[in-house]
Write a protein that binds this DNA or RNA. Structure first.
Lengths: 219, 219, 219, 219
DNA sequence: CATGAATGAGGTTTCATTCAT
DNA sequence: GATGAATGAAACCTCATTCAT
């Protein structure tokens, strides 16, 4: 029981290093094996192929992120129609968003190396478009919100790509954090700004009057 | 003089197809040559290596985009300190931004195939991070703007990553357009929403009161 | 006592399938083991190597065929010298042959899958030339017959390869049946024609006058 | 012009040796290249893959055999209905057959090594069933002959597999020659016996009376 | 200007088999 | 009886690039 666990660990450790340095495509299994002090046969005993080896490294964190996203988005779907504007711009607006985004951020920072591997070195693997999966989850959320707003503001309409963009942008904001900000505490400050930013952007398109009315205050 | 031009064109045409289908790394020069009806030697007469062949395809459009960005950002720098808030949230705010973004968008759509090649298939080439170049240009703009705002609102401060994020996001908004929206007219509508979005996001972080004051209108 | 028998059976069943699908050489022991729900170690506990596994499948039927051939050929050797022409072309000629060939055919059809495995999928194994063994048995029979005919027709002579060819052909006729004819009853009809064919061919070479004299009957 | 021809020849020479010794499947391209004093890249410049290398060795002789077979079979189809029995059992019967078979035999012996390679070492390559192609050609011939005989002897009928068997056997007779008889002159003697044999076999099944009438002559 | 032969290292994957447990 | 981890060699093939002609 000890032996095989050790071998897997050794392979994964060497694999992480190699994938991280060269990216999925340019990484060499031969190199991984020799770095791990293991034969290629051993690698193929534990992993079906290169792709599965790569996925084995990041599968856990992918699943974690996914489940936190699903969980939070499920909560959000339940906000009653009459409350959603309050949730958007009322007192305490963004509280829920912050909880969700900071939870996800926290998970990502707890496994920052793996997340960076996944986000920046996966091209060529079956996970190269994993971000799209997160974006899809996020999209569902914004589509629901769009529907609610359409009912509340029947005379407004937005580009059909806009909701998808915002979903996209929310995810990219997280990607930006993990790839550009080393320190988790700084990332959290950034995230709280991001809530304002995303909400402000969203509202500016749906309810542009919100700004214009206030010009005088700043002149 | 005719012949070599022909050969170059044939190679580039085949190269575009191959790079577009497989991405830079998986593209095969052998395939490009045989598709072009040309020998490997010919290719290497005109292009130093695989990377230069790839770059030759997109260099033109990269330069165009860069120069339009530079031009516009130069204009923006010249806005007098006292006018910049007006430019941000006043009557006619965003006009300049729209001109710049729509100019860039227009160039991109005029060469959409090449831009898609550059943005989605360059990994492994020396242009794999070309977007960062655009982001850097954009960043300079927002840093200047940040400075101005810091002076105007001395008691505000934002995360040090925030300006960079917004620069980043402005570029990503364009990338999103070109990669997700086929029709240029639709893209333009999207872009005009995007101006509101970006400006709204930016202001929401710098001047969060802009919203709060208006809550009552929507309750 | 039950368990190991089961394991062997499971392995053999999976082995048959794999060998039949891919042929001896391309068959994978790994696949066989996983199909059988057994580890490689188990396989190697019961079978020395790949070859022995293959042979274990067909050994039984090979032995059966061999013994039936030996038995019948022994009978044939005992035909008295003065009777052999009668046996060849007299009333009731071919009766013994039919019995022998139909017995062998019967055995083969009773184990058609295994025989097909042996005849068409054995290349690379130690049984790849098993047909030659049957041909050798058959050859002995025809050599004896040749000797008898040489004595009876001292002024005739045939190519030294001819007797071997006929032995060869007799076996190939059976191989043809099992590999081309699915239904045993049809195979038996084919076999009875084959007796005429083989005997006619044999006589035509040794006693060509048999035909020439009869031309007029068919003109 | 000298160089590439030389390289191809060297590769083919080494390939022939390796394929002949180990058979297609077990042959190693590495070994072939190192024996030929050439890199694997060079091999793959001239040959698409292992299969094409193998085929390049034997393609010529396959085509030759095929064309001789086609030519002769075309002649045979033209024999008038009233003459075909004469051609089968009359004075000079078998002359045409002998010409055809000896022509083919001649070609095969002129390239005996390649033919042996093709017939005994091709398993795994795309030519592993090339004999079936020859049998198919032969089958067409015998099917035509069967039709003619059916009209001439309306009350006779044979197993539906019989014509195919005879076509099969005619080809196998040639295969036997090339694989068992080293000397071409001896092969020719064998072939002339084979004509008698095949014709005798064929007639014995269609016109069994041909023999029975003559028994008395040999008692 | 262009050919096309040749390099040589490297790629991933599969294999039959062994052996300590 | 049976496990399953590990071996290690070898498999076919592709690649970007070079260079004499």
């Amino acid at each position: 029981m000890k032996k095989n666990t050790d071998t897997i660990k050794k392979i994964q450790k060497a694999a992480f290093k190699e994938f991280f340095e060269k990216g999925y495509m340019k990484a060499s299994l031969r190199k991984i094996c020799s770095d791990a002090g293991v034969t290629t046969g051993a690698l193929y005993f534990f992993f079906k192929d290169k792709d599965e080896l790569f996925c084995s490294l990041v599968r856990g964190v992918v699943d974690e992120i996914k489940s936190v996203m699903l969980e939070h988005f499920a909560l959000e779907q339940n906000i009653k129609e009459k409350d959603f504007i309050e949730a958007l711009i009322g007192e305490g607006a963004g509280k829920e968003d912050f909880k969700a985004l900071s939870d996800i951020t926290d998970i990502m920072y707890k496994n920052r190396d793996l997340v960076l591997l996944l986000l920046t070195k996966a091209q060529g693997s079956s996970l190269e478009n994993v971000v799209d999966v997160f974006i899809d989850l996020s999209t569902k959320q914004y589509e629901t919100l769009s529907d609610k707003m359409s009912k509340a503001f029947p005379n407004k309409s937005i580009s059909k790509y806009f909701a998808h963009w915002v979903a996209h942008d929310q995810v990219q904001a997280l990607v930006y954090a993990i790839t550009h900000i080393e320190n988790e505490d700084e990332a959290m400050i950034y995230i709280s700004n991001m809530i304002l930013y995303l909400r402000g952007g969203w509202c500016s398109v749906w309810i542009p009057e919100a700004f214009k009315n206030n010009i005088d205050n700043f002149k």
